[in-house]
């Protein structure tokens, strides 16, 4: 069974790009447009990985990560954050919220797949 990944991003094009790239790489992908949407959809499937943007309206990525880590089902699920912010503060903030790692935007599709493989194989 293919692994299922949720991608959370308010930019439809980035989200679709991520989804398309991952589907091409053989993953199942569920899209969510922000933190609130992601939380609403998180119970609908068993996810092997969550990839979330940080800057989003309604609920930002850091809050989403914190919310997800409370859920028993998601507790040990890897979460990657997409960030253009290269400052380590943001990364550390994400890490302490419970993120597994980060992908620095902009990235190329191959880079995304590489990082995802690193995390879930």
């Amino acid at each position: 069974m293919p692994k299922t990944i949720m991608t959370v991003d308010d930019s439809a094009s980035v989200r679709q790009m991520v989804a398309y790239t991952l589907r091409e790489a053989g993953y199942d992908v569920v899209e969510a447009c922000d933190g609130v949407d992601a939380l609403a959809k998180i119970d609908s499937a068993t996810y092997n990985l969550v990839i979330t943007d940080l800057n989003m309206p309604r609920m930002d990525g850091i809050t989403l990560i914190k919310e997800l880590r409370i859920k028993p089902k998601i507790r040990f699920t890897p979460i990657l954050m997409l960030t253009t912010e290269s400052q380590s503060e943001k990364k550390m903030e994400g890490k302490s919220a419970g993120a597994t790692g980060w992908i620095v935007k902009p990235f190329k599709p191959e880079q995304l797949v590489t990082v995802v493989k690193k995390v879930i194989g």
Binding site: S11, S13, P57, L82, K105, P106, K108
Partner: peptide, 15 residues
Amino acid sequence: LFRALHTIKGSSSMF
């Protein structure tokens, strides 16, 4: 403003 610029920058390189 920041979000818009951020998204433009982030996605443009990917495409």
